[in-house]
Computed example of a mutant assay.
Amino acid sequence: MIRINKLTNKQANIKIKNSYIRTMNLLRKLLFPFAILYGWITSARNFLFDVGFLKSRSFSIPVIAVGNLSVGGTGKTPQIEYLIRLLSDKYKIATLSRGYKRKSEGFVLADAKVTSEILGDEPYQFFQKFPQIQVAVDANRVNGIEQLLSESNKPEVILLDDAFQHRKVKAGFYIMLTAYDDLFCDDFMLPTGNLREVRSGVNRANMIVVTKCPGNIVSEKMNEIRKKIEDYLKVDIPILFSYIDYDDCVYSENEKISVTDFQVVDKLVVSGIAKPEPFFAYLQAVKKSTMVFPDHHNFSENDIKTILDTANERKIVTTEKDFVRLKGKLPVDQLYYLPIKSSFVTSSDEFNKKILEYVGASTRNS
């Protein structure tokens, strides 16, 4: 008699996932020579900018660039939103992004006619949340800034989203983000690792923020991380720590429900962001009631049908970034989102002081 072992669907999925991870890890190791080559190329490019052979453009108004050394989610969007909240009561603010995966080209300044497809999900989120600011997209950051400054209602401060490697613009202040569970100092160059450039690029920063920390991180752990980062610094750069702070409520277009009440609701949790596990955990979502899509995913008609079929008339909750792409495609009374914001672990005073001093001095000089 032959005994046949039958895997459950869950076991089969785990086996496939583990096999995929092993294959990808092996592939990354095999591509190590290309990582070395890529590191040389990016280092040479940075050197040419540093010595002035390749030109960087400076501007007379304060320009703050937020970015990172690695690919993947480090929390740039909540950091930009933090800066908007800090500065928009005192200054006319504009954000300038590439507009990742947008279905438009060139310079676009948000107005009442734009959609998330035209602007990109993150810029459209800025536009929806902060009607008092200007939101623009342009892959050519120099052209984008020139276009903003040619407007009759030109901004007094420009925030560049994901612009740490955009050396053609010389920002006045650089904020470099690195994620707590994926520190740049523990990483390696693409394609073996996730770094866009060598670790020494951190020295262009005016401030480093370790993002996505546990809310209860202890001072000993922060000191340990600070020391690891300082090994790559040539000058003294402030190193701060932040965490993702979730809202107490989820929102639809028509109502809000406390997270405490929503946690016990039978729901479907949908995510199209990098590293969605903390989002799922906060909503106490069991794995069988979650759907994961790639970061910045453009939801197709088939995706929408799959989501609705899986939800089976249950409430659907998603991230704020995904909400702007799902809005209008799913029933209004069924779709909710959970806002997030960036908060500093100890105090925001040092961060706020540095930014306000830079902007104030630059505005007076301009």
Rank of each mutant, 00 (worst) to 15 (best):
I2W: 11
I2N: 13
L7I: 09
Q11D: 03
I16N: 10
K17W: 05
M24C: 13
K29F: 12
L30W: 13
P33R: 02
F34E: 10
A35S: 15
L48M: 14
V51T: 14
G52M: 10
R57G: 01
R57K: 13
F59Q: 09
S60P: 13
S60W: 04
V63Y: 03
I64F: 13
N68I: 10
G72E: 14
G72Q: 13
T74V: 05
T77D: 06
T77F: 11
E81T: 10
R85D: 07
L96V: 07
Y100I: 06
K101G: 04
R102V: 14
G106S: 01
G106W: 00
V108G: 03
A110L: 13
A112M: 00
V114T: 06
S116T: 12
G120H: 07
G120F: 06
K129R: 14
P131L: 07
N140W: 01
R141Y: 03
I145G: 00
I145C: 10
E146L: 15
E146V: 13
E151N: 08
S152A: 13
I158P: 05
L160Y: 09
F173S: 03
F173W: 06
D182E: 00
D182L: 09
C185M: 14
D186H: 15
F188H: 11
N194L: 13
R196A: 06
S200I: 03
N203G: 10
A205N: 08
S219N: 04
E220P: 06
M222A: 05
N223V: 01
K228R: 14
V235H: 15
L240Q: 12
Y246D: 07
E255N: 15
V264S: 14
V264Q: 10
K275R: 15
P276E: 06
E277C: 09
E277P: 12
P278Q: 08
F279M: 02
F279N: 07
A281C: 08
L283A: 09
V286I: 04
K288Q: 13
T290V: 14
H296N: 07
H297V: 11
N298F: 13
N302R: 08
N312I: 03
N312W: 05
R314N: 06
K315A: 12
K315Q: 09
T319S: 09
K321P: 10
D322L: 05
D322C: 09
D322I: 06
F323G: 03
V324R: 01
R325H: 14
L326K: 08
L326G: 11
K329L: 11
L330P: 04
P339A: 05
K341S: 09
K341D: 01
S342R: 01
S343T: 06
T346H: 00
N352Q: 08
K353F: 05
K354T: 04
K354D: 03
L356Q: 05
E357H: 12
Y358F: 13
N365R: 15
N365Y: 10
N365K: 15
